[in-house]
Structure formats: C-alpha cells, structure tokens
Simulated assay, not measured.
Amino acid sequence: MNDDLLILRLAVQNSLIGCVTSELRAVYVKIENKIIYFKMVFDGEISDYWYETGSEIGTEIVSHFSDYSINEDFIRKDYPEKLDYPEFICLYKRYEL
C-alpha cells in the first residue's frame, strides 16, 4: 500500500469519529491523478447535517495532502439496495442483516 493511500485511510477514519449517524450506510474512497474521491452512501433522505458535516470531513481529509483536490459525492441508496463500488476502498460500512 502506498503512503498516500495509508494517510487517506487514516484521515477518513479519524474524521468520521463522532460524526456517524444511523443513516450513513458506507464511506468509500479512491485516489486517482491527485484527486481524492470521497463517496458517502446514505439510507433515506440526506439531511442538512450530512451535507454540512460531509463537506467538513472532506476539507479535513484533503488538508492532509498538499497538492491534491477532493471530489465529494453524497449518494442516497436505501437499504436493502446493494452497495457495489468495486473501484473504491470501503472505509466504513454499517452493519446490515
């Protein structure tokens, strides 16, 4: 694993501490061409809390990288719809039966 990916994983997981609510289903990331792709998947309507908090998390993540930009994506995908993003690394996934 390269250093940027390791730093990204730690930055995302650290940024999520104390923020996760029941509607957050999963968090995915990938790095490509100096762009961090940050995808948050929600069950139900995405609240104002998450639009604001998600942007703050994105800002905190990209602050660990001097020459990268971030692409934030907030997606509604209600349970039991399958989560399938094979090109991304899953850093958080809520427990679902």
Results as ranks from 00 to 15, higher is better:
F38E: 03
Y85S: 06
V62H: 03
K93D: 03
F42Y: 14
F88G: 02
F38W: 03
L83W: 02
C19T: 09
S22C: 00
E23T: 13
I17D: 01
V29Y: 05
V20S: 04
Q13K: 06
L24M: 13
L10I: 13
N2M: 08
D78I: 13
K30V: 03
F88P: 01
I36L: 07
I36S: 03
F65L: 02
P80H: 08
D73W: 00
S69K: 11
L10S: 04
F88L: 11
S66C: 14
P80S: 12
Y28K: 00
C90I: 08
E72P: 13
V29K: 10
R9P: 01
T53L: 04
V41G: 04
A11C: 09
S69Q: 13
K77P: 02
M40H: 02
C19Y: 15
T21G: 05
I17W: 07
V27M: 06
G58C: 04
L5V: 11
I75K: 10
Y95D: 10
Y51V: 15
E52Y: 11
G58W: 00
I75N: 09
L24Y: 06
Y79A: 15
Y95T: 09
D73F: 06
A26V: 05
V20F: 11
K77D: 10
E72D: 14
V12H: 03
I75L: 15
T59W: 07
E96K: 04
N71M: 12
S47F: 12
S22H: 11
D3K: 09
I17G: 00
D73R: 12
R76G: 14
E56V: 10
I35G: 05
P80D: 08
R94F: 05
Y51K: 08
E72W: 05
R76M: 12
E81Q: 12
Y85P: 04
F42R: 08
K82T: 13
S69D: 10
M40V: 02
D78G: 14
L16C: 03
S69H: 07
G18I: 15
K82L: 08
I75Y: 09
I89T: 14
Y49D: 11
I31N: 06
L24H: 05
I46W: 03
V12Y: 02
F88H: 14
D3C: 01
D78P: 09
Y68A: 11
Y92G: 01
R25F: 05
F65K: 03
F42Q: 06
L97T: 09
D67N: 12
T59Q: 06
N2S: 14
I36V: 12
D4I: 01
K77H: 11
K93V: 08
I70Q: 07
M1L: 10
N71W: 05
Q13A: 01
I35C: 07
L91V: 15
S69N: 09
G18M: 14
T59C: 00
T21K: 13
D43K: 10
S66G: 02
Y49E: 07
S66E: 15
E60Y: 09
T21N: 09
A26F: 03
I57K: 07
D48W: 12
